[in-house]
Write a protein that binds this DNA or RNA. Structure first.
Length: 272
DNA sequence: AAGTGGCTCAACCGCGACTAG
DNA sequence: GCTAGTCGCGGTTGAGCCACT
């Protein structure tokens, strides 16, 4: 398999504002699917992967910025207890948060929590002796993965025992997990946030039958933005270079394009 | 004020899954 | 069925910021 094509000029590292604008522009034109194509035609000298990552984690219009709310934190804990380190899956249940963000949050906060627990070194001893704390607090290293230790929740890539999954392919919560989660909850939950996150999760943001947003127990922006709505389907069906050239020569003056760029500007103001 | 350690977050890497030819 | 290209995911890294000493 040919990996990075003659990566002579492939840029790496932080994205510039100019690059961001360029990327958003091309995603507006071609949608958020054909990353390799976008990477090529945009002239960004980035890999498709890099473009996708930048879009998903930073430029996507529906993203929330800033610290996790207590409700979100609880939701992360709840969902992690169900699904383990399946961050993208968890992220899908938390509007405006990316898998990367949740992953980062989990690492830092859970590690911190574990350190505190270790310091106190009392109540959690019995749990720590099981593998639970390891998984709850730190991702296994590569070598640990290879050795098959410290991973209570095999990822969907790994040798996941399907008998542990429910009808939806979701993992059931065993009694042991419930127990450990209760303990963790007690450690983490602050008294003021009494919101039942499980309820939020179950009844929460979307009515899945008609796919509409029906409510949100904590303040979050609407997920869909004009850019997001049109970008994924309508435009990216265009036929590669030829149509792109046509569009570029048109000066990119379609309504969609203009609204895209407005969206970009608005978001730019929100970032950082 | 300078040094240090911890935290946050953007970005990269490797791998498996998926898809088209 | 095979192969190459592409995408998506999870794990990891490192730069920058900030609080503390």
């Amino acid at each position: 398999m040919k990996m990075a094509q003659a990566d002579d000029h492939i840029r790496k590292g932080p994205w510039t504002e100019q690059e961001d604008l360029q990327l958003v522009c091309f995603v507006g034109l071609f949608g958020d699917r054909r990353w390799d194509f976008i990477a090529k035609v945009s002239g960004l000298n980035r890999t498709g992967k890099s473009c996708r990552l930048r879009w998903v984690n930073y430029l996507h219009p529906g993203l929330k910025r800033g610290r996790m709310t207590p409700q979100e934190e609880r939701l992360v804990l709840e969902l992690h207890s169900r699904w383990g380190n399946r961050w993208s899956r968890i992220a899908r249940k938390i509007p405006g948060r990316t898998d990367n963000e949740i992953k980062n949050y989990w690492r830092t906060h859970m590690r911190k929590k574990a350190q505190e627990m270790r310091k106190r070194g009392t109540a959690m001893t019995s749990i720590a002796s099981s593998s639970t704390i390891n998984t709850m607090t730190e991702s296994p290293t590569k070598s640990e993965n290879v050795l098959g230790i410290s991973n209570r929740f095999p990822s969907n890539k790994g040798s996941c025992n399907t008998t542990d999954l429910d009808a939806n392919g979701e993992r059931d919560i065993s009694e042991e997990e419930d127990y450990s989660m209760d303990r963790i909850w007690d450690e983490i939950a602050s008294p003021e946030d009494e919101v039942n996150s499980a309820q939020v999760f179950n009844e929460g943001y979307y009515n899945t039958k008609n796919n509409k947003e029906v409510g949100c127990s904590f303040s979050c922006p609407p997920m869909a933005s004009p850019l997001w709505e049109f970008s994924s389907e309508s435009l990216w069906k265009m036929d590669d270079e030829d149509e792109m050239k046509t569009l570029v020569h048109m000066g990119g003056t379609s309504d969609h394009f203009n609204s895209t760029m407005n969206t970009v500007d608005n978001h730019k103001l929100c970032f950082r």
